[in-house]
Simulated assay, not measured.
Amino acid sequence: MQLACSDLEPLLRERMQQMQAKPLPQLLHDQGLLRQWSQQHLLERVQQSVGFSAEEAPAVVQRLWDGIGQPPPDFNLEGQWLDRVDAKLQSTLQQRWQQLQLQKWLELNYGEDVESHFLARRESLEKIVYGAIRVASVGLADEIYLRLIGGEESFAALALQFSLGEERYTHGLVGPITVDKPHPSIRQVLQTLAVGDVHPPLPLNRWYVILQLEHREPARLDEATRFQLLQELFERDLNAQLDQTLDELLPRLLTTTASEG
């Protein structure tokens, strides 16, 4: 197909003129860059504020070098320690270091709030595996449903044969995913099913979907979930602080830009 590019140049020129007419702080704000840079700066400040004691250092070093394939060097984590390691490892180690710094800061500032936040979020953190068969005909959907409840064929075999969705490549299986991820209509149905139950065809947009609940795993406050919840609490406060700060800062930046112009 031949793309119609003949009018691209005047369109770009017009767009450039519109952008040039705006003060730089307003342009950066409209493009989301002002917020992105502010968030990155605050995150770096948070990470740089965290250190590790001599007692913590061995465990931190072990986590930094986990899976690297070579033993960690015998040195402390003071100063510019990254400059003293193999250049090939510096990028990986820096990312892990920043993650560990952030994790410690989050624990210090939000650790006491995690359990109550977990209780509030527990239902939505539950993980499920379910079967789905999507077809375009209500008649075919009813036939598949009857064959399932009659035990004539397995859900996997019918999904592979009839489903028009991507789940046919997994024999109908979707997940494990948290219960809040599926379409709201599917989520509502799954909440009513016991493991092994098959639901009659559900009209959904232009499809008819047959659902079966395969597995339900209650949420647990393990290490991964704890870190997720810590990040949620941090991002909630960070976004609120950024909203307030940028609302106050942008007018001052615009005033300064106008006076300099």
Rank of each mutant, 00 (worst) to 15 (best):
V46W: 02
P73R: 11
L93G: 09
D86E: 14
V129R: 14
L34I: 11
S53N: 05
G32N: 08
T92N: 09
G69K: 10
V114T: 05
L140E: 06
A132W: 02
H41A: 12
G69H: 13
G79D: 08
Q103W: 06
D66R: 14
L100A: 04
E112C: 02
V46Y: 09
L28H: 11
R121N: 13
Q26E: 13
A120N: 12
K127C: 14
S38L: 14
D113N: 11
S137G: 00
L33E: 12
S124L: 14
L77H: 03
L100P: 02
Q47Y: 00
G139E: 06
A57I: 06
A54C: 04
V50W: 04
A87H: 07
V129F: 05
D66M: 11
P71R: 12
S91I: 14
G131H: 02
R84V: 07
T92W: 08
L64R: 04
L102F: 08
E56K: 04
R63L: 15
I133F: 00
Q48V: 01
W97V: 08
L140K: 00
W81R: 02
I128T: 05
Q62V: 13
L42S: 07
Q36L: 13
R63G: 07
Q99P: 02
G111K: 07
Q80G: 11
W97K: 03
E44V: 06
L119Y: 07
D66Q: 14
L108T: 07
K127V: 11
L43R: 11
G111L: 01
R134D: 15
P71W: 07
G32T: 10
K88V: 15
I128Y: 07
E44A: 07
A59I: 15
H41C: 09
V114K: 00
A57Y: 00
Q99L: 09
L93E: 09
E55M: 06
Q40H: 12
L102I: 04
L108D: 12
P58N: 10
I133D: 01
Q90M: 08
L140S: 03
V135G: 01
P25N: 03
K88N: 14
G111M: 01
L28S: 02
S38Q: 06
I68D: 13
Q95M: 12
W65S: 12
F75H: 15
Q26Y: 03
K104R: 14
N76E: 09
Y110G: 04
I68P: 12
F52Q: 01
E44G: 04
Q31W: 10
R121W: 00
K104G: 00
W65V: 13
V138N: 04
Q39P: 00
E112R: 10
L102H: 00
E126C: 11
N76L: 10
E126D: 15
Q26G: 08
K104D: 00
L100E: 03
D83K: 12
P72Y: 10
S91A: 15
L119H: 14
A132C: 06
F52D: 01
